[in-house]
Simulated scan of single mutants.
Amino acid sequence: MNSSVSSWRSLLLRIGDKCAEYGGSADHKEHIDACYGHLSRELEYSKDDILEFLLQCAEQLPHKIPFYGVLVGLLNLDNEDFAGKVVETTQRNLQDALYSGDCNRIRILMRFVTVLMCSKVIVPGSLVETFETLLSSAATTVDEEVGNPAWQSRADFYVTCILSCLPWGGAELSEQVPDEIDRVMAGVQSYFSIRKQTPETGFQVFESVEDKVTNEK
């Protein structure tokens, strides 16, 4: 591996390390600028390798997803084709994760897609469409006539994924597409109203103990 390849890989891995957010004193903007400079110079020679490694970093270092999202946003200003490949590959990976039921990967990729929206790599409407697809699937799953309520935990997970994206991009969605995100939240409320409210089995033992104590009194 030559020094230039080693350099951009190392920068991608270490981006954000020792920044104030992680208890250090380094400036995260300097990390981003340095990494962006190296990547923009290497894209012509190592585009496929950079794409693959960047997405691996986003999945395996999810706490750094905001940094990777900003990087893709900056690269998008000069190279829309590369950013488009990032989006295309991420969406394909998300579809694969949904098909295989890889919950952790679904959650991480949904976060990455949300951050890409914040970095103006994808339009807000595209993210809302993904939310609504998950909502529709969740609602259909718990429908006793056309779905399979036994899979309610999967439906709950889809809705949880939507809600977990909001800390990463809810403010931007509310500002840019307020009507659409209101529609999504109304859909979430609707889902909660139709899902079965089943007691949490893990707490039943405590309820039994409380009932026993009450009866003894």
Rank of each mutant, 00 (worst) to 15 (best):
N2D: 14
S3V: 07
S4Q: 15
S7N: 13
W8Q: 09
W8E: 02
L11G: 08
L13K: 06
G16Y: 05
E21G: 04
G24N: 02
D27E: 08
H31R: 02
C35M: 03
R41K: 11
E42H: 00
E44G: 11
K47Y: 04
I50L: 01
L55R: 01
L55M: 08
L55K: 01
E59W: 01
E59R: 08
Q60N: 11
V70Y: 02
V70D: 09
V72T: 11
G73A: 02
L74S: 01
D78A: 12
G84V: 02
K85H: 10
V86C: 01
V87N: 06
V87S: 11
E88A: 15
E88K: 11
E88C: 06
T89A: 06
T90V: 09
L94K: 05
L94C: 10
L98W: 04
Y99E: 12
S100Y: 07
N104V: 05
N104P: 09
R105Y: 04
I106V: 10
I106G: 02
V113S: 11
T114W: 04
S119L: 02
K120F: 05
V121R: 00
E129A: 15
E129V: 02
E129Y: 15
T133K: 15
T133D: 13
T133S: 13
L134T: 06
L135T: 03
S136Q: 14
S136T: 13
D143G: 09
N148L: 03
P149W: 10
R154Q: 13
A155M: 03
F157A: 06
F157T: 04
T160A: 13
C165I: 01
P167A: 07
A171E: 14
P178H: 04
E180T: 07
E180L: 09
D182P: 08
R183N: 10
S190W: 11
S193V: 02
R195F: 07
R195D: 02
K196M: 12
T198F: 08
E200S: 05
E207R: 12
V209F: 10
V213I: 15
E216K: 12
K217L: 14
